[in-house]
Design a protein around this nucleic acid. Sequence first.
DNA 1: GCCGAAGAATTGACCAGGTACAAAAACACT
DNA 2: AGTGTTTTTGTACCTGGTCAATTCTTCGGC
Lengths: 229, 229
Amino acid sequence: MATHTGLDLGPDRDLDALPLRERKKIQTAIRIWRTAVGLFAERGFDQVSVAEIAAAAEVSKMTVFNYFPTKEDLVMSPMEQHLDESARVVRERTPGTSAVVALREQYLAALERFDPATGLNDDRAVVDVVRLIHRTPTLAMRATAGFGAQARALLTDELIAQDPAHDELTAQIAAAQLLITRLTLTTDNQRRMLAGERPADVLPGALDRARRAFALVERGLGDYCAGTS
Amino acid sequence: MATHTGLDLGPDRDLDALPLRERKKIQTAIRIWRTAVGLFAERGFDQVSVAEIAAAAEVSKMTVFNYFPTKEDLVMSPMEQHLDESARVVRERTPGTSAVVALREQYLAALERFDPATGLNDDRAVVDVVRLIHRTPTLAMRATAGFGAQARALLTDELIAQDPAHDELTAQIAAAQLLITRLTLTTDNQRRMLAGERPADVLPGALDRARRAFALVERGLGDYCAGTS
DNA sequence: GCCGAAGAATTGACCAGGTACAAAAACACT
DNA sequence: AGTGTTTTTGTACCTGGTCAATTCTTCGGC
């Protein structure tokens, strides 16, 4: 169904155009996912057992684990489709553009189209999932960590490949700084959505904040917080 | 016992100077911890059950959970005593010093005394724990995430308190960049220890890398990876 | 058009981490 | 010694996650 949440259970397809088996598979996957998120949003992540989800989706517990390796994946897997995006942006940037500029421009563009990956989106399903993640410690942890681990590795590799002159540690730090900046901006936007603000109203400020944040990465913190400002 | 691993089960105390009850408590806590880490180092985190640890430490399973809330805490809790360190460094820095400089100097000093928190330490117990964390996905995740979450919050609050002129988002990004830089440096040092290098040999390079890394935060990435270098 | 085989989806039985609770043991204080 | 408090323990149980077997769908041969 490829909703705005980023739920891509397999690439986008016309459901009617493929073998019965595949269709059923996708249907049950979606049914399970919807059921789970619905129950979670209603009563909290820890207050809903997998058995309960299975029952509500009219499936056995095992089947749930077949489609989603862990309970957390029921919430997180849609968001983790985009882990390689930053690496791709750097790889495919127009030559002569710095990594910072490439990622900044891409993020600004994503903001302007209200991409859920920027946090600047108030679709019901998206906000439900975001709220869930913020409310559940283990999910919050996974959101930041799974991110940190994999995305950083990808971007680091990309930076090394692009610019073998610099050493690996520099690439790691650059990747980490860029990604954590992006994450911080996104989290900030998500917080505003949870507070009930409207994306269109937030957009100008979000663009401004993003520009300043990337500038911070580009030019450094300087003597930030030196007390002499 | 307050070993180099950072295991502070309660503040440092002379064991003989306090009531029998407390002494026993500390002794069993240490016994459980040692047993667990020994078994983990030998056979891997997932291959050892807590029931087994309990048996080997001559204690009931319940008691293990009494001292360490979760299985992960058996490995991680000693390292998480120092989460507020960065915030403290910023709070107690000499006036007029920027946050970057304060944290850099503190990190350099920690390196020179081979503080395990810098990764530059090859004590048997320390390396065992580090290897364990690197080998076990869930532990690695918790190491980076628990870090990211709590330490960042603390440092952010500190930066805001110190410099109310700047907005909160800037403080968040600054905190995140500083901490992730520190973490990246530490991870790099840990990798070298795991590869068998000696702390004394690594120290000069580690100091240099740390200086360059913090310079990167201070002055920014600039047009890093622009291809025109 | 029917049947059997291959292979997937699904399942029920099982293991390990973690919690709740009450009983028992060990300690401290008088 | 005796009593009250804290720690430890045993038991029972719940939940997330894994494994071998069972059932069902699809496809090729007759």
